[in-house]
C-alpha cells in the first residue's frame, strides 16, 4: 500500500510556479528522498502533503487520507519536521515534547513514558529540563525530530533535516534517521539538497527541478541508468607521453569521454570490470607503465546533471 500519493500537484505563488505537476508515490515503510536544489519545490511539496498549505490543483493522499478533504485525519497520522526548527525556545526540551503529545490527545503515564523514551532516543536526556533557548543547532534539530515522533506517526516528513548542521552533527543525524527507518512501518519522506544524503538514506529518490519531478527510482537504478563507470588510470613513468597513453585508451572498445589530468587518464566505460583488462593490456602493449587503476560508479551528481542538463552545485549556489 502507498503511504503517500501525490497526483499532479500544482501551486503558484505570485510570479513563481512552485509546483508544476508533481506526482509520485511512496510505499509504506519506505524512506523516500526528494532531491533538488533550493527553490526546486521540495518544501512546497512537503507543506502541501502536511496540510500546511493547499495546492491550487491536484490531489494528495497521506496515510490513506485526502489532504484537502480530511486535513485533521492527515495531521493525526503524520509527524512533520520542518526545514526551520519549530522548537519553543522558552520551554525545556521535555515541555516541548509534552505539549506536542497533549495536542495529539496523549496524557498521563503513557505520555511521560513516551517522552522519556524519545529523549533517550535523540540523546537529550541530560538536557531535557533545560530551557531549549540554550540548545545547540544539532540539539534543537534532534528535539525537532523527537517532537515529530511523540504520537507515533505512520508517516514522518523530514524537510532538510541536516541543513545548517556541522558535518559531525550531520553524520549523527544520518545515523538517527537510519535508526528510525529501521523501526517497523514508519514511512519517511525526506527532502534534501545534499546528494550524498539522499544516496545514503533514501531507498528511492525523486529528483525535483523547477516544480517538477524529472526522474524517480532507487539511487542504484538512477546511477545504472547512466550506464557505466569512470575508470581512472594512474601512469607510472610518463616521460611526457600522457597524451599518447590517452590515445591508446581511446582505441579501446566502448571507452568514451577520455581525458587527461597530470599523470591520470580518465575514461567512461559501460562496465568497469570488463573494460579494465582491455585498457591495461592496451596500455601494456603501448609500453606504458601503470601505477594504479580505480573505477568509480556514477554519482547522483552525474544523475542530476544528466537529467536536468544542469550542474547541481552551480544550480544550488545560484539560488
Amino acid at each position: 500500500m502507498d503511504a503517500i500519493v501525490a497526483d499532479d500537484l500544482r501551486k503558484r505563488y505570485k510570479d513563481v510556479q512552485a509546483l508544476d505537476g508533481v506526482s509520485f508515490a511512496v510505499r509504506e515503510g519506505e524512506v523516500f528522498g526528494l532531491l533538488g536544489p533550493n527553490g526546486a519545490g521540495k518544501s512546497t511539496t512537503v507543506r502541501t502533503l502536511t496540510t500546511l498549505t493547499q495546492p491550487d490543483s491536484g490531489r494528495a493522499v497521506v496515510a490513506g487520507h485526502d489532504v484537502i478533504r480530511h486535513p485533521n485525519r492527515v495531521r493525526r497520522s503524520i509527524g512533520y519536521v520542518a526545514q526551520d526548527s519549530g522548537v519553543d525556545w522558552e520551554a525545556t526540551g521535555r515541555e516541548n515534547l509534552l505539549l506536542q503529545g497533549r495536542i495529539h490527545g496523549m496524557a498521563g503515564a503513557p505520555l511521560n513514558r513516551r517522552v522519556d523514551e524519545l529523549l533517550e532516543l535523540v540523546d537529550l536526556r541530560e538536557a531535557a529540563d533545560r530551557v531549549s533557548r540554550g540548545y545547540s543547532g544539532g540539539m534543537k534539530r534532534r528535539l525537532d525530530i523527537a517532537i515529530g515522533l511523540v504520537h507515533r506517526p505512520k508517516v514522518l516528513f523530514l524537510d532538510e533535516p541536516t541543513t545548517g548542521l556541522d558535518p559531525e552533527a550531520r553524520v549523527a543525524m544520518w545515523v538517527e534517521v537510519e535508526r528510525l527507518a529501521a523501526q517497523e512501518s514508519l514511512t519517511i519522506l525526506l527532502t534534501t539538497h545534499y546528494l550524498e544524503e539522499a544516496d545514503r538514506l533514501a531507498e528511492r529518490v525523486a529528483i525535483v527541478s523547477r516544480g517538477r519531478i524529472v526522474v524517480e527510482g532507487t539511487p542504484e537504478e538512477l546511477k545504472a541508468g547512466l550506464r557505466g563507470a569512470l575508470v581512472t588510470v594512474e601512469l607510472g613513468d610518463v616521460n611526457g607521453r600522457v597524451e599518447d597513453a590517452a590515445n591508446v585508451v581511446r582505441g579501446v572498445d566502448h571507452a568514451s569521454e577520455v581525458g587527461v589530468e597530470g599523470r591520470f587518464v580518465r575514461a567512461r566505460v559501460p562496465n568497469g570490470a570488463q573494460a579494465i583488462p582491455h585498457i591495461l593490456s592496451a596500455l601494456d602493449g603501448g609500453g606504458f607503465e601503470v601505477a594504479a587503476v580505480t573505477t568509480q560508479r556514477p554519482s547522483l551528481d552525474d544523475v542530476y546533471l544528466h537529467y536536468t542538463g544542469r550542474d547541481f552545485a552551480t544550480e544550488d549556489a545560484g539560488s
Binding site: 500546511l52 493525526r76 520542518a82 519549530g86 519553543d88 506536542q100 495536542i103
Partner: peptide, 16 residues
C-alpha cells in the same frame, strides 16, 4: 515571535 520561530507552523501540522 511564534511565527518567526516556526512554532505556529509546527502547531498547524497537528490537530491543534
Amino acid at each position: 515571535t511564534d511565527l518567526d520561530r516556526h512554532v505556529i507552523d509546527r502547531f498547524l501540522a497537528t490537530p491543534a
